[in-house]
Structures are given as structure tokens and as C-alpha cells.
Write a protein that binds this DNA or RNA. Structure first.
Lengths: 197, 197
DNA sequence: CCCATACGAGACGTGTAGTATCGTAACGCC
DNA sequence: GGCGTTACGATACTACACGTCTCGTATGGG
């Protein structure tokens, strides 16, 4: 679909797409996203910042949204962390993630994308795997804990992951936005009280 | 600021603002929001549907966003429910709320507003009290449970509320969107496992 | 060397936000 | 009842962004 690699595998004739332009566009998108948020991001601004023509952008992405999704997907998500202890794993993963969010202002982008999905099927299709793959390390950590017997066997891991990330999502979306890293500890502790075996 | 009542208290001279137009605008806003979501809502569309001129809208609200916030704020939030049992209270409140969300497609509006806040100070100020007041019945129920001794005393109720709503927020924002009402039970049960005294 | 494709630049059409200007309608006050 | 003031619906207008299209040019493979 969109977000194809520069080496269009179909035809080999003609001038190949510039990998450099491709990366410059993604970089510029992220920069502008961080500077002004979703609503201030314009395709013309991205083109100008990246030093490319608009056509070069639209040749790669069908519209503004998939471009943003791909740029967003390039950011670090939860970084897996295996300390042998679930509480530490979670606290460290969530803490790291929060740092990224707080420093990049991406807390503003994610809700926008999430909201737009509901009325934009194309975006929904693109966003789903990105959104889901980012939860993976979290689920993995919970799974390891379950195998260690640290976590009750009959607990639905998907639901457990939601319980752990939930408070952060709420704080991010509905409260001030900025979330102090020291809040991660109590949150994880509280969530884990009910999950332990 | 915006969202002033039709009876502008400052001056009494001249034709008074039409209460009927005011309400028609809010109604039309909600209708269009439900039909096409945030991205499909245009001020011209609202004016047309409400049978008013655009100036009549901008005389009351500074821009599109505050209008949406006020229309959104008119919707029912959590409806307090006191059964004498925390689990039942929560399940019923969340269940009711989910019904509203699923039938009105407002799940698409909320994330959009939440995301926009970060780069729009005016919206942030308007959205904050709306967002917070809606949590109130939830906190109240938790407080009652704490007084009954059903809930551990040392638990931070704000955090507990986040834990309860969290999984729903995650499902709403990051997963398919639609959330089946029968999922509320397991969610509340899991969250409560750690909250009980 | 030739053809196919991508390139940067920017004109263009469409649509929407928000402002300004019509002539008209409703109210308080004298 | 008339007058001034303000709101009304309608609509023209400016500014701006998305997405399309067309330039003339650059860069590759065969």
C-alpha cells in the first residue's frame, strides 16, 4: 500500500526512488510533529523542511495520515526488559516509555491518530498493527512472569496489559498530559496487587 | 469567555440572543459529530443544520473547538449508582457509559479533543473541568466503598479510578474501538482484586 | 544512448476556518 | 409609537491547506 520501500520491487526501469528523500521526509515529519503537534503539521511544511517537492511525498504515501503513522511507528515503543522480576520489568519499561513521550510531545499525536481511526478506514488499517506491536514487550513480560509462577495462571494477559497501561493512558489523555515518572511505581504496584498469583 | 449564556449580562439593550438558536447549534453539533465524527464536522454544516448563520455561531464560541467541547459536555457522563456494593456500582456505571459511547460514536470525538489539548491552551482550559467532572461519580463510589471498609484505606482514590477506567480507555483508543459490554465484568473484577481491603 | 521513472518547484482546484457586510428583526427606553 | 441598539440569517471574502497536475530536469537500466 503506502509506505512502500523506495526500491519499488515491481519495475526496475527508470530512476529509482531516493532513499535519502524518503528518510528526510520521515525525519521532517517527526520534527514538525514534535514542534507543533498534529494540528500544526502540514504536508507543505514537511516538504519544505525535507527539501523535497510535494509530489515526492504523495508518490510514497497516499495522504498525510499514513505518513504520520509511519513516522510515528519509527519511534521507540516499549523496550523489552527482563530482570527476572515482573514489577521491575514493568516499571522500567513504562518509565522509559514515559521519558520518550514527555520529551517528544508525542502524547499529542497518539490521541489524534487514535481518534481519527474511527472515521478513516485506511488509517485504521495502518494504525492497528503499529499500535498492537508496541504492546508486545509488555505481554511478553507478563507471560514470563506467568511461567515463573509470579502471576496467576488464569489471568487474561491482554486484559492484564490493559490494566497496567490503563492508568497511564488515562493520565496522558485526560489529565494534564505530562506524567511524572515517579508515578509509575505506585501505578504498577496497585495494578499488580490483583494480578499476583 | 465562550459558551456564555444567551442572556449576555453586560448590556440589556438591543435584541437578546436567541436561546432557541443556541440550543439548535449545540444539537446540530452533536448530531453531525455522531454522524460523521470529528473530522467531518464543519462549522458551515452546523450552521446549515441548525438553520442559523455562521456569525451566530462565532458570536457565541470563539472557534470550532470550544463549540465541540460544550456540545460534548452536554452528554451524559457516568451516572452515579449506589447499590451498596462497589463491584455492582462500577459495573453498572461503566456498562451504561459504554452504551452511550457505542451508540453515539463519541469514542471518536474524545480522543481527538484529548489530543488537541496539548497544543491549544484555550481548549485545554475548557476541556479540563468537563473531563474531570465526569470522573466524579466514579470517585464517589470508590469513596463510599472505602467508608464501608470494602476498599483498603490507604489506596489513592484517584489512582484507583484510573485503574478501573484504564482498560476501557485503552480498548477505546487503541483497539477496535467498539467495546462489548460483557467485557466490563472481567475488567472490573480484575481491577478490584487488588483494591479490596 | 535512449527510455522510463523520479526529482524539485509550483500552479491549480476544492473545501473550510474565521471575518466582514448586507438588509432585517426583536427588544428596551423615551 | 418611534428610536437606538443589538442579534439575526445570508453570503461574500480572505487566508490557508490538501491533494492533483504539469513543468523542465536528473538519474538510473538495457
Amino acid at each position: 500500500m503506502s509506505g512502500t520501500s523506495p526500491n519499488n520491487s515491481g519495475s526496475s526501469a527508470g530512476r529509482p526512488r531516493s532513499e535519502q528523500a524518503h528518510q528526510a521526509i520521515l525525519d521532517a515529519t517527526l520534527e514538525l510533529l514534535v514542534e507543533g503537534g498534529y494540528s500544526a503539521l502540514t504536508v507543505e511544511g514537511v516538504a519544505s523542511r525535507a527539501g523535497v517537492g510535494k509530489a515526492t511525498i504523495y508518490r510514497r504515501w497516499a495522504s498525510k495520515l499514513p505518513l504520520i503513522v509511519e513516522a510515528f511507528g519509527g519511534l521507540p515503543g516499549f523496550e523489552d526488559c527482563d530482570t527476572g522480576n515482573l514489577s521491575d520489568d514493568l516499571k522500567r519499561m513504562l518509565g522509559r516509555y514515559l521519558e520518550v513521550f514527555n520529551t517528544t510531545a508525542l502524547s499529542a499525536v497518539l490521541p489524534s491518530l487514535a481518534g481519527e481511526r474511527f472515521h478513516n478506514d485506511e488509517l485504521s488499517t495502518l494504525f492497528e498493527p503499529v499500535s498492537m506491536s508496541r504492546r508486545r514487550p509488555l505481554i511478553d513480560a507478563l507471560e514470563r512472569a506467568q511461567e515463573r509462577g509470579e502471576l496467576s495462571r488464569e489471568i487474561d494477559l491482554e486484559l492484564a496489559a490493559d490494566l497496567v497501561v490503563g492508568p497511564i493512558a488515562v493520565a496522558l489523555f485526560f489529565k494534564g498530559g505530562r506524567l511524572k515518572p515517579e508515578m509509575v511505581g505506585p501505578m504498577v504496584d496497585l495494578a499488580l496487587r490483583g494480578l499476583r498469583a
